[in-house]
Amino acid sequence: MPQASHVSVSETPSGATAPQAPVLALEHVSLAFDGKQVLRDVSFALLPGHTKVVLGASGSGKSTILKLVLGLLRPDAGRIFVNGERTDTMGEHDLMRVRGDLGMVFQEGALFDSLSVAENVGYRLDTEMRLPASEVRERVDEVLGFVGLRDFLDRMPSELSGGQRRRVAIARAMATKPGILLYDEATTGLDPITAITVDREMVKLRDLEQVSSVIVTHQLRDAFYVATHEAVRDGAEVRVVPADAAKADEAEFIMLREGVIAFEGNAAELRAATDPYIRTFLS
């Protein structure tokens, strides 16, 4: 099991408290490309249902972390655990199984150009899991309804706006009900109103579907929005409201500076940080 750098406690059925195992952990991970160090000795852990926000300037290695978690890249040193399984030494065949519990929202969405919205969202259910067409259609309807795009089933990706593409990408990532969702600059390049719509989807997924999330971004406004809000059911309606202190503590921030973790803590600690680089980043 990974040596989590963060361990929280939860109530057991007997009333006693027990530590929660992280669903995702990086231990002393380093990676270099063509002699340039991209990540150096990066360690963190993600607890179930929590959010890890990875901040940093362009080229600081944020997106590389997500590719390492997915097994699209392999670290030069260190260990990576997903749901307790070490993945950095796994073969591609075993990684396919591990990826079953991981959903990824790529920059710009990375939707398949030749497939409609419904086919994109139902891709894994249909092509890889070979579920019956009716079951696929039902789940596609459900997740597209969740992101408010049920009427866009037959559209092609080229017919969607930037925000709609990101929301379809979120729907595709959540279609198989993964336990962990990875967001790579999901709101970059979007106007503030559309970005808030995408932020709300992330909050709803985390709080209503109990999905653990890693959010890579350099959009501070979106990072703080996700960290300081929570989704609550109000009858049939779902509302996104400011989170209480305990809930806000479940979102942790990491700031990368040239491949090294320069800060780790919650939203309040980040706001109170005195490091000149962090102050410049926040200003």
């Binding site: 699209l72 991981l102 990824m104 790529f106 990375a110 398949f112 150009d113 890889e128 595709r172």
Partner: peptide, 22 residues
Amino acid sequence: GSMAVTDQINALRALGTDPIRK
């Protein structure tokens, strides 16, 4: 090439598909 530069190849792998086979 277009799929590679728009991350669609990575998206395939993330969705559990081996691009060589598909």
